[in-house]
Design a protein around this nucleic acid. Structure first.
Lengths: 217, 217
DNA sequence: GTCAAAACTGACCAATTAGTCAAATTATTT
DNA sequence: AAATAATTTGACTAATTGGTCAGTTTTGAC
């Protein structure tokens, strides 16, 4: 009967172009959104399928009809995330003005934290807990990309276009300062109170000015 | 018989100076260390008492003899943490040289991340998951302290001793960049590989130089 | 050494969890 | 309007979880 069902929403899919129904599309989106909500808040082990199903407005067996397990669901979210997460850094170009390229990267990364805070937290949860499910992505695609861009920054540094800095730790600091606004939002909210509404705006101003100042040769 | 036992290791204690035995001292330390290990890795909901008991080398009922529940154990860790976590900022003094005071704070905070990475992760887990158990600490003692030090930094800024920056976002950036080395250690390890061993040394150099450069008037 | 308090244990419980499955219901095709 | 395929559900399981408790063993003061 439905022995091919478990594969419906399988991660990569690609091959096996069985027709995807309207309902499949809708429910898959709803489920992934719900899973992101719950996983990002409680981490992998803290999240439950009941919570996710409830959040998605489905019964648990119905959820399992679309994704054949908790792990599959989580993996799907993570692999979707990695692509989105590396984009801003990939766009850093050797052709632009060095200082602008870096500051633009900071802004893009901050915007990502603002628009996709749940994704940021999902990622943070995974890393903090030792990245058991994405360690290959870290030492693979991520490292390759960072090595590449670090070399670019190093060349700018050497050419005197920006201050002499360790490019790797510069990148780390950009990750840290931008993602902080998504991951530690509760803390920021508690501290800023009245000025909470403009936090991303203010952060953009601060970080932009700070990196500009810190990187001038 | 042992009806006072559940209170043995109760958080504040203070009153009720019942004698504390040698074994109580030893086991309490062992348990808290094990709990820190597990909670910091899996978050509150992801951690299990079985894991913690196992890590501590005790049976679960024996663990519960010292701490009367999972929540008590977690709370105890968090309240111990808050004190330690605020110290470095508290030490920032209006009497010193502004730039040095701030850079020293950065170094102290980085050292904390290096020496107590598990505490940093415990804190991060709690905040990411919405800080359900320490929100009062955040909007209470933490906010008070930050407001105080932000005013100090603002005064330095106004007096032209350091660059004009938003003091709150400066503090956020310091939290972010330093704690990042504890919380995202796995990611940093994956990226740095060969240079992993000297990461804290390199980070100290980078951050010190960067904040010095970024904050000069 | 005796004995009471402290420390510890195995066996248990009720609740929650990921996951299954046969059967019922709903959509889609013809 | 059938017939078929896709979707949904309730009722279930086996494993795990936080926590209890009666009773046993160990510790330390005298």
């Amino acid at each position: 009967m439905n022995q091919q069902n478990p594969k419906i929403a399988k991660a990569g899919m690609a091959r096996n172009t069985k027709k995807v129904t309207r309902i499949q599309k809708e429910k898959t989106i709803k489920i992934l959104d719900a899973a992101l909500e719950i996983f990002s808040q409680f981490g992998y082990r803290g999240a439950t399928l009941d919570q996710i199903a409830d959040q998605a407005g489905l019964s648990k067996p119905n959820l399992l009809y679309y994704f054949n397990g908790k792990n599959t669901l989580h993996n799907e979210l993570l692999s979707q995330l990695m692509v989105k997460w590396l984009e801003p850094l990939e766009e850093m170009s050797p052709d632009g003005e060095p200082l602008e390229e870096i500051c633009d990267y900071v802004c893009r990364k901050l915007a990502l934290a603002q628009v996709f805070p749940r994704e940021s937290r999902l990622f943070a949860n995974e890393i903090i807990q030792g990245a058991p499910r994405i360690s290959t992505s870290l030492s693979g695609p991520l490292k390759t990309l960072v090595d590449d861009k670090a070399a670019l920054i190093a060349s700018w540094s050497k050419a005197g276009k920006i201050a002499k800095v360790d490019p790797y730790h510069l990148i780390f600091s950009i990750w840290a300062t931008t993602q902080h606004y998504a991951d530690f939002d509760v803390q920021i909210g508690a501290v800023l109170e009245k000025n909470y509404a403009t936090r991303f705006e203010d952060a953009a101003k601060f970080l932009s000015a700070f990196y500009r100042n810190g990187l001038r040769p």
